[in-house]
Design a protein around this nucleic acid. Structure first.
Lengths: 200, 200
DNA sequence: AAGCATCTACCGATTGATAGATAGCAAGGA
DNA sequence: TCCTTGCTATCTATCAATCGGTAGATGCTT
């Protein structure tokens, strides 16, 4: 028992094949959507057979759920609350927007949640619940950050409304970019939020 | 030649079966997406056989393109520029938002363009071009309406940026609503635009 | 010996699309 | 009036491809 595993902070071996399947799955979901993502294509990309994909993820739902959970975990991990100072809050909001741009806009797709929302009727409840939970996290974080920008106190209702507006701007901007093929419109659409703190 | 057809303003007989197929197609696109929409299901809903659907629309692309073109035509038809007065402009913008809410939010789906954008890689160039053209119309109209709200003159760049922001808010709000299952968040997300004129 | 991971081979269902038969209808000539 | 021609719209039947998923054999490692 030489316990090599304790060396790693991430105490999660996670089969590399499984990871490769999830990576291929996420890519396929983003570029083609849920229905068009096929186990055979994923297998081909990973270099295995489709039956082996089923070994790791019995059904499509299992795979999507795993991808989504990792997506959320990874997202949440990089999401830290800033200091309760107005400028720090604006900086955190900008990082949030930058992260979305790098992950979604620069990737030439919509966000994973948007893609799945477009095929909502095909998804199992478990997947829908995961998406919903994901959005609550984003809303809570954004609402808190916005509250940090206000000099005085702000009603929690109002901070949540700002969170909705920012989230809507982000996701809608990606739709606009994809639909019109004009990536530069992302920053134009997000511009007001880049200097939100000045409004308070 | 008794020319009964000249009685109608809309000089477009348009086979009723064809219309029924398009209606079923639009519904299927919105609820399940492009890939999951099947000619057999459409046929069943209309009460014909799938071969008859192919008779009217040889390929899936043909059907989607027809649906999209009608969608745009119908949209454009109801889109009139307001008088060049600040309050009239705000009223027109509110009607625009209301129309989106009725057509998209109350329908419990994303917008047709958003759904198609989510499966962009599966669509033919002709369809993508149609979507792009559709967005240019919306941007132009919104930019013009915003320009009517300003007391003085506003650079066209700036009015277009407002158009991007409004469009992004609309589409993103529908994603937020669908993903979180909370329809009331639509108005919260759109609230700033409901009183835009007061900012100028 | 046992478990893990992969394979081959296959199933039933569904898909987009096509070929070809059929029925109804309208126009036109005898 | 009757018959023919041709067009429109629908049908039946089918194809090749692809899909998600399963059964069971195989090999590798411990």
């Amino acid at each position: 028992m030489d316990m090599q595993s304790t060396l790693s902070a991430a105490n999660k071996p996670e089969n590399p094949t499984k990871l490769a399947i999830m990576a291929a799955g996420e890519k396929a979901l983003l570029s083609q959507g849920y229905k068009a993502m096929s186990f055979r294509d994923l297998a081909a990309e990973v270099g295995i057979k489709s039956a082996s994909v089923h070994y790791h993820f019995p059904t499509k739902s299992d795979l999507v759920l795993a991808v989504l959970k990792r997506y959320r975990a990874d997202f949440t991990e990089h999401l830290v609350l800033p200091k309760k100072k107005r400028q720090a809050a604006q900086k955190a909001l900008n990082s949030f927007i930058d992260g979305f741009r790098k992950r979604v806009i620069d990737n030439g797709t919509l966000s994973l949640c948007t893609v799945l929302a477009a095929e909502k009727s095909l998804l199992e409840q478990q997947v829908l619940d995961e998406i919903e939970a994901f959005y609550e996290i984003k809303v809570d974080w954004l609402a808190t950050v916005v509250s940090y920008m206000k000099k005085g106190w702000m009603p929690t209702d109002e901070t949540r409304h700002y969170a909705y507006q920012i989230l809507a701007s982000l996701h809608g901007a990606s739709v606009l970019v994809q639909a019109s093929g004009a990536p530069e419109r992302f920053e134009d659409a997000m511009a007001p939020w880049r200097t939100l703190v000045e409004r308070f």
